[in-house]
Amino acid sequence: MKKIYSFEDKCLGCKLCEVYCKTARSKSKNIIKANKEENIDSAIIVEKTNKDTHFALQCRHCTDAKCIKACISGAIFKDEIGIVRYDKEKCVSCLSCVLVCPFGAVRKSDFNSTVTKCDLCFSTGKPLCVSNCPNDAIKFLDEKEIDDRMEIVK
């Protein structure tokens, strides 16, 4: 399956991905309304490192997702493609998922009792954060493609 991969050396730390993530997750799908008027959390997080560089991080859609194992209500589940999805209607806000995510990528919303996590923009299949990154610091790639590049970090 395709996932979003982060390339730290290219990240400017501009946080445009966060701006577009909020837009994608908003009702209006309007960039200004989403970021100024609607209370939307970003599911992608831009982190600053101790070397003053940046990288973007979001749900890794783990093969063996701990959040799914921890969820008591079935609100977090894996769909047919392998995307780890969240159904807020089933959620009781126990935060068990937040407690186990190794990446800290399933987070409690700043605005309500739900949790926020990336769903890879599954309804369009085109993550807005990726298409709006000005420097290709996040890419939407097949897992197999990244396997070849793993050499870099070995």
């Binding site: 991969y5 990288f55 997702a65 590049r149 970090v153 070995k154």
Partner: peptide, 11 residues
């Protein structure tokens, strides 16, 4: 470490 972890996802 972090790049490897992020790219691999949790095992």
């Amino acid at each position: 470490n972090r790049t490897k972890k992020m790219w691999q996802g949790a095992a």
